[in-house]
């Protein structure tokens, strides 16, 4: 499990280098082939014992964050979200710019806000990153327009749960790395695709199909939970601790019925706890894989995660371990899977 290392790296969409390098280092001796494609996707290959089918397991390396869009005269930085980040989670946080410069997103003290603005949700235009620089000139020595900005949350593990940033989708990356570490051979040829730019419109995954022409793709995600006291139970998407979530539909894609049922059958066969993802909001690279080229049957297995797209998300380690187990069993099924 590489959740600590992976989530403490910065890899905002379009700037996945740190994450890619880390994964590359850890897996390069355990696979038959490894390449980085034009967009920056890292694709590892493990030959199958029969090799009549090609299966892609995909997780995205990128996370939501920000980009510096202007350096103001007073030395503060204007910024814009990269991917979906609610303004709610921005103020009062420490961020890292370009992998090194530390800054904070502050907001005007409660004492000097007028009544109206106190009760009005913030917009990103009202927020700036402060790096301790007093002028544009001073700030320009450390940051440039276009620099990437990530949250700085330290990973924590306690009580069977872990908290940190970017479980969407470093959880998926870690699951893939765990599967590679097991170093088993399966019947099908396997491609582990660590893709870029998922959070800005499922972009990295768009060029994978053409390179592999897979028979099946399974996307491994960190997905929304929503199981908290502010949402009535009927609105929950998943529930932490009930096992990995299997998706039947999300934005832009109804999961191939054969794949969906095959995943469920494996879970049932090996008594692996699992749950259906019970909302159709959000999307994954499965939609992109399914509609690229001549189309591919794609499925989704997810680790339920609370508070994603914020600086502190949370997953249950049982769910994580069961996701690894479920995928391992799927691979062990070999040609019997989704026949």
């Amino acid at each position: 499990m590489y959740l600590k290392e992976l989530t403490e790296l910065d890899g905002v969409s379009g700037n996945e280098q740190q994450v890619r390098d880390f994964i590359n280092q850890r897996i390069k001796d355990k696979v038959d082939d490894l390449r980085v494609d034009v967009l920056g996707n890292l694709i590892a290959y493990k030959k199958g014992t029969k090799g009549r089918r090609k299966i892609v397991l995909a997780a995205h390396m990128d996370e939501v964050g920000f980009m510096v869009t202007n350096i103001e005269e007073d030395g503060t930085l204007a910024f814009s979200p990269v991917g979906g980040v609610e303004t709610q989670v921005m103020p009062g946080k420490v961020v890292r710019i370009n992998g090194k410069t530390i800054g904070v997103i502050g907001y005007k003290a409660i004492h000097i806000q007028d009544k109206e603005s106190l009760l009005k949700p913030l917009s990103v235009e009202q927020l700036r990153i402060y790096i301790g620089a007093k002028s544009k000139e001073e700030a320009s020595k450390q940051v440039k327009i276009g620099d990437y900005v990530a949250f700085t949350t330290a990973f924590d593990q306690e009580n069977g749960r872990v908290t940190g940033k970017a479980f969407d989708d470093r959880a998926g990356c870690s699951v893939l790395m765990d599967l590679i570490e097991k170093n088993d051979r399966y019947e099908d040829d396997l491609y582990f695709a660590f893709v870029v730019q998922e959070e800005v419109g499922l972009r990295g995954s768009a060029v994978v199909v053409e390179q592999i022409h897979p028979d099946i793709v399974i996307v491994i995600e960190g997905t929304t939970a929503g199981d908290d006291p502010e949402l009535p139970e009927y609105q929950w998407a998943t529930h932490l601790g009930d096992g990995p979530a299997v998706t039947f539909m999300h934005r832009g894609y109804v999961v191939n019925k054969k794949i969906y049922e095959a995943i469920l059958n494996v879970a049932v066969k090996y008594s692996i706890p699992h749950q259906a993802k019970r909302r159709t909001a959000g999307g994954t690279d499965a939609a992109r894989f399914a509609r690229t080229g001549a189309g591919t049957a794609a499925g989704v297995v997810s680790v339920p995660s609370r508070y994603i797209h914020s600086p502190v998300s949370m997953i249950d380690l049982n769910d994580y371990n069961n996701a690894v187990l479920l995928l391992q069993k799927i691979l062990e099924e070999g040609e019997a899977f989704a026949r």
Binding site: E86, V89, K120, P121, E230, L231, A281
Partner: peptide, 21 residues
């Protein structure tokens, strides 16, 4: 004890969540 102040992810937010503090 440790705790995390929860927040709805953007995927589950509706207008009512976004328009109100």
């Amino acid at each position: 004890a440790k705790g995390v102040v929860g927040v709805l992810p953007p995927h589950l937010q509706k207008e009512e969540h976004r328009n109100k503090v």
